[in-house]
């Protein structure tokens, strides 16, 4: 740890009440070997400028609050170490979302889509709690487990060019959550979710750039979920053409 070394943090500022458009403001902060970009922002907030706004909470990459563009790449700022960047670090709000203020983006659109895909167990019949748990083998759990790991940080939306060009696209995190429930042995709600997933704004809007999976901090691999949904939807289509098909 060197006491004198500093870095420059270029922070995108946007104060809707006074600014017509965002601009960058530079802050010089100490370089501390163990620090992440969020620590540097907290240094700014505590010591240099109390007016900078951003979301954060857990500082351990699980609450999903602190996603931002760091040198152009969507990252959790609590897991982006200063040591991995140069002497100047550019911090912007997540791409493809409207900026509410400074590094805070409006995520209403995601919340609406997430709600629309019905992210909960839809069981054929409700089993009383007194009858105990549903049996689910480790293999059955493994099938969907990876897709439960999404922390809703929205880095995937900030990386997705399809979402940038068509805001109607349901998007990676929501579609992979639909897939997660479809794969769960306790669920029978796939047909309902397909109304959204298999629609034009659903998986078929995806051209498999794969950026979502590249940036996912939890290795959920939403691109995989979407391609698997495409294949399953295609099978549905051909099955329906067969005699006796739906």
């Amino acid at each position: 740890m060197s006491n004198d070394r500093t870095i420059t943090l270029e922070v995108m500022r946007y104060r809707p009440e006074t600014d017509a458009a965002p601009s960058f403001q530079s802050y010089v902060v100490p370089y501390v070997e163990e620090w992440v970009v969020l620590d540097a922002l907290n240094y700014v907030k505590d010591n240099l400028d109390t007016t900078v706004s951003y979301r954060w909470s857990c500082h351990m990459a699980v609450c999903g609050s602190c996603g931002m563009m760091i040198d152009g790449e969507p990252k959790l700022s609590c897991k982006a170490f200063l040591r991995d960047y140069g002497s100047k670090i550019r911090v912007e709000p997540l791409s493809h979302f409207p900026i509410e203020r400074d590094l805070v983006v409006v995520i209403d659109d995601f919340i609406e889509k997430f709600t629309r895909i019905r992210p909960y167990i839809i069981a054929q019949s409700e089993k009383p709690v007194s009858e105990g748990e549903y049996l689910q083998t480790p293999a059955q759990l493994h099938k969907y487990k990876q897709f439960t790991l999404c922390i809703n940080c929205l880095l995937c939306y900030a990386a997705c060019p399809q979402y940038a060009h068509n805001p109607e696209f349901v998007g990676p995190a929501a579609l992979s959550m639909a897939h997660r429930y479809n794969l769960d042995s306790r669920d029978s709600g796939r047909d309902l979710r397909q109304e959204v997933s298999a629609s034009h704004e659903g998986v078929w809007e995806c051209s498999f750039v794969g950026a979502c999976s590249d940036v996912c901090p939890k290795h959920v691999d939403p691109a995989a979920a979407i391609q698997q949904t495409k294949i399953a939807s295609t099978m549905d289509y051909y099955k329906a053409l067969l005699p006796g098909g739906k």
Partner: peptide, 8 residues
């Protein structure tokens, strides 16, 4: 029952 992925 609500879908929590408990280890098994």
């Amino acid at each position: 029952h609500w879908g929590c992925p408990w280890s098994r």
